[in-house]
Amino acid sequence: MSAAAIVMMIIALLAVWGGLGLALLNLKWHPEAIDDEEADVVAQGGESVPPLR
């Protein structure tokens, strides 16, 4: 395998998998928010439930 091919393979892997790593870190730094009404729906396993209002 040529040096140019090795360098391009490493760049491609670093760019894409590195981007994925950063995106996952960003999600970890921003935990999701849930409001009470949605928590009720999720408690039903995400199924359709009659309106709570």
Binding site: L27, E32, E38, V41, V42, G45, G46, E47, S48, V49, P50, P51, L52
Partner: peptide
């Protein structure tokens, strides 16, 4: 009418 289904989380 049922509410829209929902993912349990992101």
């Amino acid at each position: 009418r049922p509410q829209r289904e929902m993912w349990s989380g992101r």
